[in-house]
């Protein structure tokens, strides 16, 4: 994290805030047009802008397995990229879907670390997106375990290794 911060230009925090502002304008207008209630929160997490839409019934904008949320995040990143001139890694959350998914994945990682230790064998998890795998790797590491990824996208998965 320190290395990361040092490598970034000093204006980074300002840029991330600007990314959040552009994204919020784009999404706010969409909510208005679709007559959906929702408040937009902006945050910066590490080196990425996080924009969350909360309140109201937003399940349509999340979709099955977050499919609509991912599509909307994709479009929002493109809108931000067009304004900023550089690629955006902005994260969009709606109705706490990603936050809940992250907590769930964290629990999966913690449990897998415990299983790998008690069974003394590797635990192979279901295929996940890069973002999901990162959450799992972090949880395994926090539990004192080791993990790696194997396979090709979109079948790439986390393998939690037994203790050495």
């Amino acid at each position: 994290m320190t290395d990361d911060a040092a490598a970034q230009p000093a204006s980074n925090a300002t840029n991330l805030e600007r990314e959040g502002d552009i994204a919020a304008d784009y999404l706010e207008a969409l909510l208005d047009i679709a007559d959906l209630d929702g408040d937009i929160d902006m945050d910066v997490e590490g080196s990425r802008a996080v924009v969350s839409i909360v309140g109201g019934d937003l399940s349509a904008l999340v979709g099955d397995d977050g499919e609509v949320l991912d599509a909307l995040q994709d479009l929002t990143r493109l809108a931000v990229t067009r304004e900023m001139g550089e690629r955006s890694r902005l994260m969009l959350d709606i109705a706490g879907f990603r936050a809940a998914r992250r907590a769930e994945l964290s629990a999966v990682g913690t449990q897998a670390a415990a299983d790998a230790a008690s069974r003394a064998e590797a635990v192979r998890l279901a295929p996940m997106t890069p973002f999901e795998r990162k959450v799992v790797h972090d949880a395994v590491a926090a539990a004192g375990g080791r993990s790696e990824s194997e396979g090709e996208e979109p079948q790439r998965r986390v393998v939690v290794l037994p203790p050495e």
């Binding site: 349509a60 904008l61 979709g63 499919e67 609509v68 599509a71 909307l72 479009l75």
Partner: peptide, 8 residues
């Protein structure tokens, strides 16, 4: 992505 959001 546009089709997914409009579909929703």
């Amino acid at each position: 992505s546009l089709r997914t959001v409009l579909g929703a």
